[in-house]
Design a protein around this nucleic acid. Structure first.
Length: 277
DNA sequence: CACGAGACCTGTTCGC
DNA sequence: TGCGAACAGGTCTCGT
């Protein structure tokens, strides 16, 4: 489910609810959800921590605590949300953090919880002192100032990889997923199988612009919501190629094709996106 | 180094 | 209607 825009949307929504509250206790309902440390250590270390900030790096939700950093990766089906009031855990809840009650005089003493729900159990949570332990190997943040056309061009030249798998590689660029990669390549009129070192300066410029534009549009529309996973986004109504097999390309009207590249469904306009040219 | 296949999981949709 | 196959927003690890 969640790529950069969806994770950004979730982090923005959680921030005002979480900052300033403290964690009372943790309830781990699926042990493999915890990547590090051990369950015992995790529960001991997180209890009493105050939430200082909530942000995002790549596809990780980053929750800064008084002495630790909590990272959550939603992978394919994860979601993070606030649940108020005492209720039984949901079917796919994997981790529940009890928070100090809201100070509001109208809802005095009401239980507030941060719930990590994850149907497919691929999601992971880390509690560390040093953030580098989790996010140290990531490539540039695509919407940051360090990510320039020149950086993209040089990095593309320095390897010989198919464009799509390279853009999905989080060590190359952090935050792109299957949807936004297909959309960006289409916008830049580049074929997903084109070799990275075959891309010229103009094409790198177009790709840089497309990546930023597509991600910003995704954020503006609060992400994309397909089927039962993740709700609230609107970007699915504006896909140009993703999930649009056999439907017309919005640019030229040619039927969109679906390929499989690196075991991922990949959508292209066979007319707009050609390997040579 | 680049790339493909298999794992990890559950749920929904598709094809016969 | 039933039932197995294919597929899903991600990433890791192994073998070639």
């Amino acid at each position: 489910m969640p790529e950069l825009p969806e994770v950004e949307t979730i982090a923005r929504k959680l921030r005002p609810e979480l900052v300033g509250k403290s964690i009372i206790k943790a309830d781990l309902l699926w042990s493999r959800t915890l990547a590090t440390p051990t369950s015992t250590k995790f529960k001991r270390q997180i209890a009493g921590q105050e939430i200082k900030a909530v942000g995002r790096r790549a596809k990780y939700v980053h929750i800064q605590l008084s002495e630790y950093h909590l990272f959550v990766h939603l992978r394919m089906s994860g979601d993070l949300y606030i649940k108020k009031g005492k209720t039984a855990p949901g079917k796919h809840d994997r981790l529940i953090l009890d928070l100090t009650p809201s100070p509001s005089p109208f809802r005095r003493g009401e239980t507030t919880r941060l719930v990590f729900n994850d149907t497919r159990k691929f999601g992971r949570v880390w509690l560390v002192r040093d953030p580098e332990e989790v996010i140290g190997g990531l490539g540039p943040e695509p919407l940051s100032d360090e990510f320039t056309t020149a950086v993209l061009y040089e990095n593309l030249q320095s390897r010989h990889r198919q464009l799509k798998p390279l853009l999905l590689d989080q060590a190359f660029l952090a935050g792109m997923g299957n949807i936004y990669t297909d959309e960006a390549l289409h916008m830049a009129r580049l074929h997903p199988l084109a070799a990275s070192d075959s891309v010229n300066r103009e094409q790198a410029q177009a790709l840089w612009e497309a990546i930023r534009e597509v991600l910003k549009e995704g954020i503006r529309r609060s992400g994309a919501s397909i089927d039962w996973v993740y709700r609230g986004g609107e970007f699915q109504n504006y896909f140009r190629v993703y999930d649009r097999k056999d439907q017309p390309c919005p640019v030229c009207g040619t039927a969109i094709k679906r390929l499989v590249i690196g075991q991922r469904g990949t959508h292209v306009c066979p007319n707009c996106q050609r390997i040579r040219s």
